[in-house]
Amino acid sequence: MQSEKYYLKLFEYIDHNSSFMFDLQRFASADAEGRTESATEHKRKKSRDEGRVALSKDLPAAIITLLTFSTIVIFSGYIFNILTEVFRYVFENMTRLDVSDSTVYNDIILKPLIKSFIPIASVAFISAALSNYMQIGFKFTPKAIKPDFKKIVPDVFKYLKKQVFSISGYFSLLKSIVKIIIIALVSFFSVKAQLDELLAIAQYESIITSFQFIISLIIEVVFKTTILLIIFSLTDVLFVRWQFEDQQKMKKQEIKEEHKEMEGDPQVKMKLKQMYKSLMSQQKMLAEVSKSDVVITNPTHYAVALRYDSKIDAAPRVIAKGKDKLALEIKEIAKENNIFMYENVPLARKLYAEVEINDLVPEELFGFIVVAYKLSYQSRNKKGVLL
């Protein structure tokens, strides 16, 4: 009875404690979660910027192993000569070497090691860079190397979903089994093919000959194995790309929200449209300045362009006006088209504040406007006499 009560309490605790909830939805595929649409270019770019790309680790590992081992084999004579010289130097000068002198360690340890490993390290680095570049191209992503403290204490269910109870986990297990089989078969058949020679050398030849034969056999096994692993790793490349595309899939609602985010809020769009319309109207207005008769200015801040057509209007009409930067543009256009500019601070301010574009000048300002037009005609007549 006590054990039954204990288990009942335990199940009740697990049922109410979210940390023990085993949600099967965590192990659902993209289709089961409703993510059936291909990823948009925006999401692909965002994923790439965050360092999430379709990168196979098996292919670079196999290529690095093959090229690095090939470098060791090619430079084995060079490395052997360096080590031989070091040992010869040490034995010949053993009684004269001063171990307290730091240059001794540099000469007999540091420098030979650097000379020996520079070719190997260089090939390993270049092969790693190229094998990754062939898959994803070049992209520097600081976010990918940014410390993430969530990885220190990972979500157990998320880890199980990604690494164990998933297609990726099963495929990784299958890859490991196949790799072991490849290594075992290559080793077995390589040794079996030369077993008789191996036994004969072990019985009749010297230790050096036996050692050379064993080394050549190891080289043969490593080369055959790594070549087969490179070929096999192409399946991992295809799987990683398929899995990445599956993980990148989106729900229809996500695409709609992304589209809305990219397009922007409707109110913002309307405001931008109004700004664009205002800009276009300003451009159209500035185009009318060249047709004006006179421009009333407040030296730096205001400019109002007037035009009078006696056949249509009873008074001059405001065809353009502006403040600050726009005023400077109006004055610049007027100057380019030899339009008379009349400087009158109160008149310019009043016209700008009270008269809209395409409206006629009010009667109370006729006196000032007449003066402006009179000075404009006099200026034109003077230019005509000079000409």
Rank of each mutant, 00 (worst) to 15 (best):
S3G: 00
K5E: 15
H16Q: 15
S19V: 13
Q25N: 15
R26Q: 14
G34L: 03
E37C: 03
S38P: 09
P60V: 09
T68N: 03
G77L: 07
F87Y: 11
T95Y: 11
N106G: 14
M134C: 11
Q135E: 11
K143L: 10
K150Y: 11
I152C: 03
K161L: 08
F165V: 07
F165Y: 14
G169K: 09
S176G: 07
I180W: 05
S187R: 04
V191C: 10
D196I: 10
I201R: 15
E205P: 04
S210V: 12
I214T: 13
I219E: 12
V221L: 05
T226Q: 04
T226I: 02
T226E: 04
I231D: 03
W242M: 08
W242C: 00
Q243P: 02
D246E: 15
K252Y: 12
K256G: 07
E257H: 04
Q267N: 12
S281K: 15
S281V: 12
E288T: 06
V289D: 01
Y308F: 14
D309C: 02
K311T: 15
I319R: 01
D324W: 10
L328K: 02
E336N: 09
V345H: 12
P346K: 03
E356Q: 13
D359N: 14
F368R: 07
Y373E: 06
Y377L: 10
Q378Y: 10
